[in-house]
Write a protein that binds this DNA or RNA. Structure first.
Lengths: 224, 224
DNA sequence: ATCCATTTTGGAGCAGCGCTCCAAACGGTG
DNA sequence: CACCGTTTGGAGCGCTGCTCCAAAATGGAT
């Protein structure tokens, strides 16, 4: 008796069945639209028109969901990169892929630097390691060199996330903001930062990031 | 429990009077004892035997409190460092000071990498900049080199925090933990990470961190 | 077609969070 | 003494992640 009633009442049967993938997909959309703080279980239930129990049946907890979303984004970013042959170019390409991914998905950068043992970072580290090997870095030094590159990349990813947290949508506004603050610092205590403040507005994060990569690569070359 | 010695001193304010400093001090104690997640307004009110209103009268919000605590810890760590003359040694000393500070106060590393425009990071960046200048790095390259060093240091600080989050008290247990996980990875997909897993337990973060700094310094030398 | 075991769903409710707001207590000044 | 700005403690709001459970859908076996 209630069978017919509920079928007509509650829309139609779920052709759009819930699944882990659909949940992760929705999570990414929410994250991209509103940043880390926008992803709440309740926002998910609203977007997927379901309840909290249904979601927790497919996903263990919020953290796992964030990790899955990050893994998705990073895996996507890394696919374009596998084909590069020259080790130096490949390392640059990997780094840039992560940079671009964490630039357009700052929440991924945050998660990446917060929980680096997750599959997302494993992918990055493995790729870096292979190309370091191909570059001729001796066994003993591979770990150290990979760690240096990895930590630098993770650091920048975290900074991308921090910047986005400060000004979610206007990218250059952040630089102007910080430049304005630093320009008003005590000239005796912070001469360098005031000088840097002048260069901030006209500087490009992406190319500066690459300069850092090249700096480390140059350092690695000296230990070959 | 707290003992009240307010009456003993004549004519003075309550000995246990609330103040921004006392609050920050208590916050640091809570953070050191229980990590980032332990610092809640309610935990503060309990420790200081007061109410939330009293605390918010001295401190704007949680974030400002974390920033103040971090600034405190970093400022302390940097005092030992100002005297080093040789630029290379000074940069190493700064980096190590930050590493050690974020190693014994992982929450500070987390805050540092999450909000790098706060005074704590300003101090670090300014010091790095000065010594880069002393090293003879040309004007144009100072910003890039400082950024590379800063991002690397921030990245490692974030990793220290992440490791502490995973295993709050047992430092080496984290490495064994991760090594065990990585050792079970698919050998075809992650050959390098398995190889790294073997080196993990016997490796020292601190010296590896320094190797990274030296790598960047070596790279900087090539652009002099 | 009917029954049942299993999976999947939706939501009420809990404990905890940061924070606001306000009445009361305090302390210096006339 | 009265006055008034400062400081205090706590009730309460809206939000969070998450648990738990009853109900609904599903997929055989009969």
């Amino acid at each position: 008796m209630e069978l017919m009633a509920t079928r007509t009442k509650r829309g139609e049967r779920r052709a759009d069945a819930l699944s882990r993938e659909r949940i992760v997909e929705a999570a990414i959309e929410i994250l991209d639209a509103g940043g880390e703080s926008a992803l709440t279980i309740r926002a998910l239930t609203a977007r997927l028109a379901t309840g909290t129990g249904a979601i927790y049946h497919h996903v263990a907890n919020m953290n796992e969901l964030l990790a899955a979303a990050t893994d998705d984004v990073i895996a996507n970013a890394m696919t374009d990169v596998v084909s590069v042959a020259d080790p130096r170019k490949a390392i640059r390409a990997i780094a840039l892929a992560v940079f671009d991914a964490t630039d357009s998905h700052p929440w991924a950068g945050s998660q990446l630097s917060r929980e680096p043992w997750q599959p997302a970072f494993l992918q990055i580290a493995e790729s870096l390691g292979r190309h370091l090997q191909a570059l001729g870095v001796p066994q003993r030094a591979q770990f150290d060199c990979g760690s240096a590159l990895g930590n630098y990349i993770l650091g920048v990813a975290g900074q991308n996330a921090a910047r986005a947290r400060l000004h979610p949508h206007d990218r250059s506004a952040v630089l102007e903001d910080i430049a304005a603050r630093w320009a008003q610092l005590d000239p005796d205590k912070y001469p360098i930062m005031r000088q840097v403040a002048a260069q901030l507005p006209e500087h490009d994060d992406r190319t500066q990031f690459l300069v850092g990569i090249d700096l480390i690569l140059a350092g690695i070359t000296t230990v070959l």
